[in-house]
C-alpha cells in the first residue's frame, strides 16, 4: 500500500509536462508505475497465498469439521457482501472509464459510490463479527461475549446472543436451522469468553450415516482427530472447528484491512478528482487505485466460496 500511495504522491506534484526527473518521457513514467503496481499485486497474491495454503492443508485434513463450521457462517450475508463488492468494482471501473474521458463530475460520483459500497461491505462484516462475538465463535479466549450463568437465569428469554444480535434473515440448511435451534435451547453461558461450539455435529453425523453405504467419508486424519478411545470427542471436534474460525478471522480480517487501506486511497482520490487533477492524459493514480481495488475484490471472490459455502449440500434441507 505504501507503494501505492507513494506512487501517487510522486505523480501528484504534476506540472506540465509532469515528468519525474528520472524519466525521459511520460510513456516511460506510465509504464514504470504500471509495472510497479503489478509487481506489488504479485507480492500481495503471494501474501494471501500463504493463508490459502494453510486453509488447503487443514481443509484437506478435516473437511467435516470445516463444513460444520462453515455451515454456521451466514452465507446470505457473505453472498450479499460479494454482490456489494462486485458493485463497488463496477463503479471503480467506471471511475477509471470517466477519468479517461476527463469527465470530472461522473468521476467524483463513481468514486463516492465506490466508497459507499466499500463501507457497506465493512458494515456487513462488522455485523457478522458481532454475531460471532455474541455466540462465542471468536477463537481467542476472553474475546467473546462474557455471560455468567446467573445472568442467564435472570433473563427470561434464553435467546442466542442478546439485544445486539441480528436475527439472521435466511436459514437455508438443516445445519443452520438446527444450529439456531440448538442455540435457542441451550442458553449462551460463557463466563470467560471462551471459544464455544454448541451447535452439535450435524455434518459429522451425516457423514457417519453415509459411510454405512460403504463409501469413505472421513479422512485418515479425521479418524484420529475426532476420536478419543474410539469414542467421538466433542472437544477434539471443537478444536478443529476452532482452526477454521482462526483461519476465517485472519483471512477476512486481513481482507478487511486491505479494504480500509483501499478506502483511504479512495478518499485521497476523491479529493484529487474533485480538484480536477486528472485528465484524459493523466489519470494513472485512478487507474492504479482501481487495480488495487479490483485485486481486493478478487480475493473476496475466492474467500466467499471457500469460507461460506462448504458442505452445505450435506444438509441442504431448508429453503431449497
Amino acid at each position: 500500500m505504501a507503494t501505492h500511495s507513494d506512487t501517487h504522491h510522486e505523480e501528484f506534484h504534476y506540472h506540465a509536462p509532469g515528468l519525474q526527473h528520472q524519466f525521459e518521457d511520460m510513456k516511460q513514467q506510465e509504464e514504470s508505475v504500471s509495472i510497479g503496481m503489478w509487481a506489488f499485486l504479485v507480492q500481495e497474491i503471494m501474501f494471501f497465498g500463504g493463508l490459502f495454503t494453510a486453509y488447503l492443508v487443514f481443509r484437506s485434513r478435516f473437511p467435516l469439521a470445516f463444513a460444520e463450521a462453515s455451515n454456521h457462517l451466514n452465507a446470505f450475508w457473505g453472498g450479499l457482501n460479494t454482490l456489494v463488492l462486485i458493485v463497488s468494482s463496477l463503479t471503480m471501473a467506471l471511475a477509471v472509464f470517466y477519468a479517461q474521458k476527463g469527465n470530472r463530475n461522473m468521476q467524483v460520483i463513481m468514486i463516492v459510490l465506490t466508497m459507499i459500497f466499500g463501507t457497506a461491505f465493512l458494515g456487513v462484516k462488522a455485523i457478522e463479527y458481532t454475531d460471532k462475538y455474541n455466540t462465542g465463535l471468536i477463537p481467542v479466549t476472553g474475546w467473546n461475549k462474557k455471560v455468567k450463568e446467573s445472568d442467564v437465569q435472570h433473563a427470561g428469554e434464553p435467546a442466542k446472543g442478546s439485544e445486539g444480535a441480528f436475527v439472521l434473515p435466511l436459514i437455508e440448511t438443516k445445519a443452520e436451522a438446527s444450529a439456531a435451534a440448538d442455540d435457542h435451547e441451550k442458553p449462551y453461558i460463557n463466563p470467560n469468553g471462551e471459544f464455544q461450539w454448541n451447535s452439535g455435529r450435524h455434518v459429522f453425523d451425516y457423514a457417519i450415516e453415509k459411510e454405512k453405504s460403504g463409501k469413505a467419508y472421513l479422512t485418515a486424519a479425521e479418524r484420529v482427530g475426532y476420536f478419543s478411545n474410539g469414542e467421538f470427542d466433542p472437544n477434539k471436534y471443537r478444536d478443529k472447528i476452532r482452526i477454521f474460525y482462526f483461519i476465517y478471522f485472519v483471512m477476512t480480517g486481513l481482507h478487511a484491512l486491505h479494504m480500509v487501506v483501499g478506502l483511504g486511497l479512495m478518499s485521497w482520490l476523491l479529493w484529487a478528482a474533485f480538484r480536477g487533477s486528472f485528465s484524459g492524459e493523466y489519470f494513472a493514480p485512478v487507474e492504479m487505485s482501481g487495480l488495487y481495488w479490483h485485486f481486493v475484490d478478487i480475493v473476496w471472490i475466492f474467500l466467499f466460496p471457500l469460507l461460506y459455502l462448504l458442505g452445505r449440500h450435506f444438509l441442504a434441507g431448508g429453503a431449497h
Binding site: 497474491i45 503471494m46 497465498g49 500463504g50 490459502f52 495454503t53 488447503l56 492443508v57 484437506s60 485434513r61 469413505a216 467419508y217 472421513l218 479422512t219 485418515a220 486424519a221 479418524r223
Partner: peptide, 21 residues
Amino acid sequence: LAIMFAYTMQDYFTRGLGVFS
C-alpha cells in the same frame, strides 16, 4: 501460488492425512 500449493500438498497427501480412508 500453484507451486506453493502443489509442493506442500504432495507432502500431506503422501502422508495419507488428507486422504479419504
